[in-house]
């Protein structure tokens, strides 16, 4: 089966492409940009088509854009310039007339912004993840304080090192060792969930204190950061990001993705009626499978539908 696909991609694909080009008068990228729905269906197809391209100019263009986004320079005026440059290169290579195909210019430009914006987001997220939580860094400490204040607005923290941290689900009396491999990203995600969706977060926190189905809020939250990061890295999350915004996705959108995952995980956890926290790995694995499946649908759009119910 695998050999068949390889054979198809390598030998037959160009023949099919040539045939379509001759009959429709449009190159593959044009057919995608006109034929596919805006968002994940179109951008993913453009991404694939560009990667498969055998043109040396396009390969060079891709390498350049990769380099720029890996170094997080795909921003501001640079972003506009590079996007225009990419569109022009493709028009030139594929001999497309911009006067007739002005719609292609817009649609393809959007795809370029999304594809390399995503790549840049991954670099940005990766940098945060690699930043180890540092108790001597005032900024880090401030964020930890903020997290407490957002989640527990009516209770004062008695000290920097206190058992109170366990109330919001850290393991011991000092959260600093709990961020581990997720680094500052784990904290930023928790803080964004608690600030941007304060109602939802406090609601989820109250579930974590459930007498039967309780769990450690922050620890589960850090494990979900790991899930969000994995989905971003492996590309499954492209569906989400390409369908959410028409331009380059921002870090804020990643936090939004995370918040969605946390909210949904909580719902799923309660539905599963776990015997105790020891069922976490099994339930988390099942949840991950569900999310991956949902992301397979190119039209999937995820939003937190927050409504308080009473159980």
């Amino acid at each position: 089966m695998y050999v068949f696909w390889w054979f198809f991609a390598y030998y037959l694909r160009p023949i099919v492409k040539w045939f379509l080009r001759k009959t429709t008068g449009l190159c593959e990228l044009q057919r995608i940009c006109y034929g596919k729905v805006q968002g994940a269906p179109r951008t993913k197809a453009v991404d694939y088509s560009l990667c498969m391209s055998k043109s040396p100019q396009i390969a060079q263009l891709i390498a350049h854009l990769n380099d720029v986004s890996d170094n997080q320079r795909f921003v501001g005026s640079n972003l506009k310039e590079l996007t225009n440059g990419a569109v022009n290169t493709v028009m030139l290579v594929k001999k497309i007339n911009p006067k007739i195909h002005f719609q292609f210019v817009i649609n393809f430009g959007q795809c370029v912004e999304q594809i390399w914006g995503y790549r840049q987001l991954l670099a940005e997220v990766e940098e945060l993840r690699k930043t180890v939580y540092d108790a001597d860094n005032f900024g880090h400490e401030r964020k930890l304080q903020d997290l407490w204040e957002k989640l527990m607005p009516h209770e004062r923290l008695e000290g920097r090192v206190t058992k109170q941290w366990q109330y919001i689900g850290f393991q011991g009396d000092d959260p600093k060792t709990d961020f581990r491999g997720m680094g500052l990203l784990g904290l930023e995600n928790l803080l964004a969930f608690a600030s941007d969706y304060q109602d939802a977060a406090t609601y989820v926190l109250s579930h974590s204190h459930h007498p039967h189905y309780g769990y450690a809020f922050a620890i589960v939250g850090i494990n979900l950061t790991s899930l969000a990061w994995t989905l971003l890295k492996q590309g499954d999350a492209k569906t989400y990001f390409f369908n959410m915004v028409k331009s380059a996705p921002s870090l804020k959108l990643f936090h939004q993705f995370y918040s969605y995952l946390f909210y949904e995980f909580d719902k799923y956890w309660i539905e599963c009626k776990p015997k105790d926290i020891m069922e976490f790995s099994t339930i988390k694995d099942n949840f991950e499978i569900n999310v991956r499946n949902a992301l397979q649908d190119p039209n999937a759009v995820f939003r937190i539908n927050f409504s308080v119910d009473t159980i």
Binding site: G181, Y215, I222
Partner: peptide, 26 residues
């Protein structure tokens, strides 16, 4: 907690140890 159990587990299984999270459950 934070003794390094999961890191030892992953080292034994020759897996990447750069993105370990606190173990909820097992």
């Amino acid at each position: 907690d934070n003794a390094g159990k999961t890191t030892i587990l992953k080292t034994l299984a020759s897996e990447d140890i750069n993105h370990i999270t606190p173990t909820a459950g097992f």
